[in-house]
Structures are given as C-alpha cells and as structure tokens.
Measured scan of single mutants.
Amino acid sequence: TTFEIRVGDLRITLHNADEEEIRWAEEALRRGIHADEILRTLEERRR
C-alpha cells in the first residue's frame, strides 16, 4: 500500500507503512524534518 502525507507544501509518500510509522512520519514532517531523513529513519527502524 502507498500512503501520502501532506503538511502544507511538504509531501512524503510511504510504501507498506503501518499506522505507527505513518503517525510518526506525519509528526516528523510537521516538525520540519526533511523527507529523506524520515525515509532513512523508517528504513533503519524496520531492520
């Protein structure tokens, strides 16, 4: 599944994310964390 998060002009697309990952990514985007860093962190958490 694919889920797109939008916060203002910012956007990130997550693939195969669970609800916790989606909530975490949305909050991180709101705090101004760059999408590349969010994706990198999620990848590390999945390992």
Rank of each mutant, 00 (worst) to 15 (best):
17 A>I: 05
22 I>V: 09
19 E>S: 12
44 E>P: 03
25 A>C: 04
35 A>T: 10
43 E>R: 05
1 T>F: 14
17 A>T: 08
5 I>R: 00
7 V>G: 01
46 R>Y: 05
19 E>M: 13
7 V>L: 07
43 E>H: 08
1 T>M: 13
9 D>P: 04
17 A>N: 02
45 R>S: 11
2 T>V: 14
41 T>Y: 12
34 H>R: 09
13 T>G: 02
16 N>F: 10
28 A>L: 09
38 I>T: 01
24 W>L: 07
38 I>M: 09
26 E>N: 03
17 A>C: 04
24 W>Y: 13
13 T>H: 05
21 E>W: 06
19 E>A: 12
18 D>L: 11
41 T>R: 14
35 A>K: 05
4 E>C: 07
35 A>S: 08
37 E>P: 02
27 E>P: 00
5 I>D: 15
34 H>V: 13
40 R>Q: 12
6 R>F: 15
20 E>G: 12
27 E>H: 10
16 N>A: 06
3 F>A: 15
8 G>N: 02
30 R>P: 01
6 R>I: 15
26 E>D: 04
11 R>F: 14
36 D>L: 13
20 E>K: 12
26 E>A: 09
25 A>P: 00
39 L>G: 03
8 G>R: 01
19 E>D: 13
15 H>D: 05
34 H>Y: 10
30 R>D: 04
5 I>H: 01
37 E>N: 09
33 I>D: 09
30 R>S: 08
30 R>F: 07
3 F>T: 15
44 E>I: 08
33 I>L: 11
14 L>I: 14
16 N>M: 06
32 G>D: 04
33 I>C: 09
11 R>V: 15
4 E>V: 03
5 I>Q: 05
7 V>N: 02
4 E>P: 15
45 R>Y: 08
36 D>N: 06
34 H>D: 13
32 G>S: 05
2 T>Y: 15
9 D>V: 03
29 L>W: 03
29 L>Y: 03
32 G>W: 03
44 E>V: 09
1 T>L: 15
23 R>H: 11
31 R>G: 13
9 D>L: 04
38 I>E: 00
47 R>Y: 07
36 D>T: 10
3 F>I: 15
12 I>L: 13
32 G>T: 02
8 G>H: 02
21 E>G: 07
24 W>P: 00
10 L>T: 13
20 E>R: 08
40 R>I: 12
40 R>S: 11
14 L>P: 00
31 R>C: 08
40 R>H: 12
34 H>S: 14
1 T>H: 14
23 R>G: 07
16 N>H: 06
11 R>W: 09
10 L>W: 04
46 R>F: 07
29 L>R: 01
23 R>M: 11
12 I>Y: 06
21 E>T: 11
26 E>V: 12
44 E>T: 08
4 E>M: 00
16 N>G: 06
